[in-house]
Design a protein around this nucleic acid. Structure first.
Length: 270
DNA sequence: AATATTTTCAACCGCGGACCA
DNA sequence: ATGGTCCGCGGTTGAAAATAT
């Protein structure tokens, strides 16, 4: 015969844990350790199944569990790791001591996913949504399956590069707008003015916040105008460089909150 | 202030692999 | 080798909190 059943669900309590239950479970584990989750509720005097106790301990009661919002650095790291491992949350969580897979999964589903969508990126493939939609080869489900096969560090770095390239592509789009605007100084000035109106907190005219431009390790790719801006118009180019630097910092994770705030009305318009 | 809607996140569910008798 | 249980994982749910109307 096999082992005994995990638990008899009849008569067991479900739903949110009370403070008293938390104390019982914590006291028991602190004093006895964990040998068999099936036995924990019986020995601790709890009307819960072992599975529920395990979940409560790992996600909430564990003394080394890290509380509070995830930092921007952590968010960036989650995105990188998601590009490598897909939805393998426990794998991703293992890179964040004190953070639980449940917490990271929730954070991804409620926040990061939305931000990537606003950026025009598919949260599953990490590629531009238009590309995924127009190219059946890049169907999300297929991509997701493929991402599960990515295991080696080489592949991982490759996946990270792909995300990097996607962000670069986004900035190239900004570049194209810049080139178009470069055809007319007036138009260019209008563009800067409009952008300044959109983002009043950015000092477009007097200089750029270089700190935000360098503080992000992943979403602040180095950006060159050499291949996209006509070098003959240096005066204009300086302004454009500043503008693009601003956009660069806005596209970085640091600046995204600001961009999101500034452009919220665009999202509400449809 | 009251109500509706959206967001957040703790907890549950079911599956698959590991393990045991 | 087989059948059964346990554990851990990822997907999903739903109540509570926050925000909008």
């Amino acid at each position: 015969m096999g082992r005994q059943p995990c638990c008899d669900k009849v008569g067991l309590k479900r739903g949110p844990w009370s403070i008293e239950e938390d104390h019982k479970l914590t006291d028991f584990i602190v004093n006895n350790g964990i040998h068999c989750w099936r036995m924990v509720p019986k020995l601790a005097g709890l009307l819960r199944c072992g599975k529920s106790c395990r979940l409560r301990w790992i996600n909430y009661l564990r003394p080394d569990v890290k509380r509070g919002a995830l930092s921007e650095m952590e968010e960036n790291q989650i995105i990188q790791l998601h590009a490598c491992f897909g939805n393998r949350w426990s794998k991703i969580a293992s890179h964040f001591p004190g953070r639980t897979d449940n917490e990271i999964k929730n954070h991804w589903n409620t926040k990061i996913k939305k931000r990537l969508k606003i950026l025009g990126l598919d949260p599953v493939t990490h590629k531009p949504i238009e590309e995924t939609e127009t190219n059946p080869e890049l169907d999300s489900s297929i991509e997701q399956e493929e991402s599960l096969e990515v295991t080696s560090m080489k592949d991982c770095r490759h996946a990270q590069c792909e995300v990097q390239v996607t962000i670069d592509e986004k900035q190239n789009e900004v570049n194209k707008i810049m080139v178009t605007s470069n055809e007319s100084t007036d138009h260019h000035d209008d563009l800067l003015h409009n952008y300044e109106m959109l983002c009043p907190s950015l000092d477009v005219g007097l200089g750029v916040n270089q700190e935000t431009n360098t503080s992000n390790s992943y979403y602040s790719p180095t950006f060159s105008l050499e291949n996209s801006i006509n070098p003959s118009s240096m005066g204009t180019q300086d302004s454009i460089q500043q503008w693009v630097d601003s956009v660069d910092s806005m596209l970085s994770w640091d600046g995204f909150n600001q961009l999101e705030d500034e452009l919220f009305f665009l999202d509400n318009s449809h």
